[in-house]
Design a protein around this nucleic acid. Sequence first.
RNA 1: GGGGCCUUAGCUCAGUUGGCUAGAGCGCUACGUUGACAUCGUAGAGGUCACUGGUUCGAGUCCAGUAGGCCCCACCA
Length: 912
Amino acid sequence: MTETPHELSSRYDPTGIEAPLYARWLERGLFHVDAADADDPYVMVIPPPNVTAALHMGHGLNNTIQDVVIRYERMRGRDAVWVPGTDHAGIATQNVVEQQLAAEGLSRQELGREKFVERMWEWVDEYGSRIIDQLKVMGCSCDWERTRFTLDEGLSHAVREVFVRLYEKGLIYRGNYIINWCPRCLTALSNEEAEHQETAGRLYHFRYPLVPEEGAPPAKGAAGDYVIVATTRPETMLGDTAVAVHPDDERHSHLVGRQVALPLTGRTIPIVADEYVDPEFGSGFVKVTPAHDPNDFEIGNRHDLERIDVMNDDATIGDAAPEEFRGLDRFEARKAVVAALEAASLVEKIEDHTHSVGHCYRCDTVVEPRLSLQWFVKMKPLAEPALAAFHAGDLRFHPERFGSIYEHWLTNVRDWCISRQLWWGHRIPVWYCDDCDEITVSREDPDACAACGGGVTQDPDVLDTWFSSWLWPFSTLGWPEDTPDLRALYPTHTLSTAPEILFFWVARMVMAGIEFMGELPFTDVLMHGTVRDAQGRKMSKSLGNGIDPLEVVETFGADAMRYTLVSAAAVGTDMQLDHADLEGSFRVGRNFANKIWNAVRFALGGLTADDVGRDPLGPDVEPHLEVADRWILTRFTDAAASITGALDRFRLHEAAEETYQFVWGDFCDWYLELVKPRLRGDRGEASRDAAAATLAHVLDGWLRLLHPVMPFITEELYCHLPGRSHDDTLLLGPWPTGGRDGEPAFRDPDAAAALGELQELVGAVRNLRSEYGIDPGRKIDLVVASLTPALERALDEEEEGALALARLEELTRAAAIPTGVVGAHAVLRSGVELFLPLEGVVDVDRERARIGEELERLDGLLAATEKRLDNPQFTGQAPAEVVEREREKLASFVQRRTRLLEKRDAFQTSSG
RNA sequence: GGGGCCUUAGCUCAGUUGGCUAGAGCGCUACGUUGACAUCGUAGAGGUCACUGGUUCGAGUCCAGUAGGCCCCACCA
């Protein structure tokens, strides 16, 4: 059904337009590609949002970027597939539901594992779909039939397969190591999940008394018979099992082998020699606590030291510690230990000390490095090919600098702790025999121990949430089954995500892709910037400075939000948006949408169904094209080529801004205005038809160029063009390439030059009017002389439009400017002269002063240009066209100078 | 401690391999209802491209250093 232009309101209101369009796209299945039809696939997978989190502006940005890329490729004719989904987000989601339970006065322990997991699924069912809906509101053109969840049956199957394969390959192992323990979440964390923050703390220096030894000299560097050790965590001293010194430390190495009486515990511990110790730091003695510090753990291994874990899971002091401290929280215990040592005069000194302390990335609790039995993935063998692929140039980062960060991490990668003491996630597929030591790791749940036939119990823990995410590019396509999807759509092409999950996710996906698919999961990685508030702070819930994308969509429309986000900064650059001033932040996009709306609304008034789709270069139209038509067609070709190039290089903001400039600056400000008289038929039928065909053609073209960024308004307007209906769509292209890909493209450099001169002429007139304070409503006369052929031609054809733009009553073409009349001269770059009669309008003194200033500035430029051209090294070494440009510049400066001098004289004459 | 990045108009940002009389949007100033658009139009003001030195015929762009800001990694007690 075609609607008439009159139904478009004078303001663009996205309400009631976006949702129906989206529904129609879905109905027609435009986002779906069948594996069987995917001859030329272009695939992206969404970074699956956490099911718990409402989408924030970071999602708004990232998903806009992805949608721009995928829509662009779709319009270019690729079989574009964007695989959507959500992540179960282990700790994060479990925490949220636990908080919900706490509000009901319940705990997960009270509920029991089975019931708790049921609760979790209820949550997922409720909120998972809400996130999907939010993506739809933003216009994301995901292939929703492929929506996946990391705990889906299929993905769980993939996780299980991967665990078993890596175990069989010896890349998964279980062991006692120091891990980051969150005493609040009661689980192990990976290194990446422990976020280090600078924290003001204290460095405590304690005295450990030496056990006297017959005939031995006293310890040096310590008063009398003490050694002095330092620590930031005094409570761990309860678990000390040695004191270490560097073997080459001349001051202390003679004490190696002696015993120290560990205060408060009644234990004696040895002094050992270890190269880890830095003799320069502190006293040169280090207390060794193998169960609570990663370095000490290593030292303990080298010296076969006992590991004494003095804490419980919740970081209260446990039974291994002296009775007086048991049950105390670690921070209370810290005070108690210091107090007790002080009472025994064993505190040497206490200093302020800032150091970086790990915090749980989910609940911000200080993590406790702690000895624990966990499962790990051996990373080195996986990292090497991932590094090699990068070095080979098969994996590209945008911006490039993220490549070196990726490289650094992989080069120094450490084993990945993958077990979590949670209930929400993929259960570790390991069974322990109830009777013997046999461990069963299996694709199928075993009933009995393979070794002794006894009963088996599954490991209670689940896997790190990223253990499913790292398989995402192929698990979503059906792996480990050999599905048509997997064969057709893997590998994917581009991945767009936040830089903070480069290690968590991107690097690990690369490793998994190579390991399990034998091929990189994608070739290009876009790292988008961080959305910050007006003070440059990261947007966060706790600061309350976040912007809700849905609120923005509701107020300004999805297109306005998308345009604003894409144009706000280059990919990879942080952007600032003021949460307190949404209007100020998003008006750019909103105003642009309104401009587009009105431009098309105007065009609709002048176009018929016959005009739309008529080729302006067809044999019956082309001969009637005028300069303005040929110019806008040329400009369009250039803009399309440039925008296409920008998108190919992922320079989305350049593409967006350039489209803006073309639509607003070229099409609206100039072409529409020039063509108005012709559309009214003032210059005859053929001219009208040529203008209308060109107008319709170029309009159609830029609606397409704009569609990836602003999908709704472009589609809506496209469907409103005469002869079109909502059965039509822009979504499937074709994309105007501006002659890229070897397609023919219209270019007329002469017309471009001619219109350029016409624009300069109009601009000069406007400038003069404004300069001399001539009422814009008052039409004036103008004389032009020394016309170039280009301008001559432009004036012949476009005079009427140009006159209107310059608000001229009459334009006189002359061979030379008139003499003996007071007026203003201006000389265009092309050498064309303007003369504006100014009988009694001008303040002479003011004018003369201004001319003086201008001359001064011009003299400076002239001198610089002359100097450059006089330099043989410049003329010899610079590219020819640069030198040529410089010559032209000089010529125009000289000419301008001459005119200015004449002008000054003219004013002097007229005043005298 | 190691690595990376940033510093360009009042604000937010562009400035490809050095060629720039340094751009855009917003904001600001002046004027304006020329029936697509006041969510608009026209014109204008506003910048020693953080600082210092170097390379070069030529530096916002390359190099070194200084100051300020940010990010990532890291087990120095």
